[in-house]
Nucleic acid binder design. Structure first.
Lengths: 223, 223
DNA sequence: GTTAAACGGGGACACCGTCCCCGGTTATTT
DNA sequence: AAATAACCGGGGACGGTGTCCCCGTTTAAC
């Protein structure tokens, strides 16, 4: 299937084995789920077990935990960005686009992005900056459109949406069961209802941009 | 052992030392904060350090971790219950009462109740059941009143409110900083706006009672 | 069929949280 | 104010757990 135009260089065969690729994919997927559920400090061996691979495979693919976190965050951001872009493209109603994006992001467990905030990996990696800019642009576009159309209250920002989205979609710790998944979309829907115009109350504080999040989230906890 | 009945009129020393009581109080308060921030598995020594007491004092007061969790949950539930009762009593506007309670509960970090769900302590303790009934009654009263007054949409239940409240007020893992505190009340306010009548959208699923929560949240994750 | 990369499990090492012991301190009693 | 006993707090040993490597086996690729 992968008919990549590799005119074999004289050096070595650049083809990784098929099962190796499959395992790597399984690991990233599993890690994303477990990061959301238990945080990015979840034991390596647990990830390996749930992914159905040996722990050595995990260590071979991601010698540093930061590598794995990086990969997970990157893949998730890409998926969420695509969600935002497609929602903007395919929905005429600006607020419906926002709803669609939000529910989609919830399904993707966008809460997994919170390891971005605990300094356990390189926030300034080029890949990450690039992907982040795409994401910001896409979501900011959704917000702007809805606000310009007078459907979304103007006292909220992208940061508000993303943080609330993360919070509402996080599973309760310990309970591995999906019992709360049924609530996630209910509560998200209620939150979105609150975002719609006309505004029903005055909000404390000020609208949060993604810039605000990055800046404020780096305070050392104890020092 | 100590002389029992002949010298002292009271058989037991009726007075624990003043600083002992003070320390115990400090411990519970600190533990509540740290449970919210890091979960109920936070190291004992850390709690002691932040509370400004020696670790031995902590172990002397709460030999089992379950004892400490029990105490924290109980005190938190009591405070939240009181919030609900006072809100119902002092606010004429039914929806304003709901708002006041919700923001108060957010300040109390009601998200700390989620350790209730990881089986790390006795859910069936008499004290706990009693306090839980008081809490349910109080909050249910707020909800009923607002719904009967036509201010609160009727497709939501107490469970929806409590779960969303917990989710929105949970601090992000790792980031010990309170940078997100400023967002909590904003997002809660937005959520509450979504709860008000008239309903702006149709919710998926069905209204959640507290009964639903208790039943669904006890599935063993992996064992 | 041959080759070598990839796999998976077992186990040693190191780190961290738990828990106890004991000298010093502080509140209470006369 | 001095005596007394309970309480406090830090240091350190023990045990558990996560990390990481080694090696025999499997499996995809040629």
């Amino acid at each position: 299937m992968t008919s990549t135009a590799d005119t074999a260089p004289a050096r070595r065969v650049p083809r990784p084995r098929a099962d190796a690729l499959r395992n790597r994919e399984r690991i990233v997927t599993t890690a994303r789920e477990m990061f959301v559920e238990f945080g990015s400090q979840v034991p390596y061996d647990e990830i390996a077990r749930r992914a159905g691979v040996g722990n050595a495979t995990l260590y071979r693919n991601f010698p540093e935990r930061a590598d794995l976190v990086h990969e997970v965050v990157l893949s998730l951001m890409a998926r969420v960005t695509e969600l935002a872009e497609r929602a903007a493209e395919e929905e005429d109603d600006t607020f419906a686009a926002l709803r669609r994006f939000s529910h989609g992001a919830a399904d993707e467990r966008v809460g997994a992005l919170c390891p971005m905030l605990d300094g356990a990996f390189d926030k300034d990696h080029p890949d990450l900056i690039a992907e982040r800019e795409r994401l910001e642009e896409a979501v900011q576009g959704l917000v702007d459109r809805a606000q310009r159309a007078g459907r979304l209250r103007t006292d909220v920002g992208v940061g508000d949406l993303m943080v609330a989205l993360s919070q509402l979609t996080r599973p309760l710790p310990g309970s591995g069961c999906g019992a709360f998944d049924q609530f996630v979309h209910r509560h998200l829907q209620l939150f979105l209802d609150g975002l719609e115009t006309p505004a029903r109350s005055e909000l404390p504080g000020k609208a949060a941009t993604l810039e605000d999040l990055r800046r404020d989230s780096c305070a050392p906890p104890t020092s």
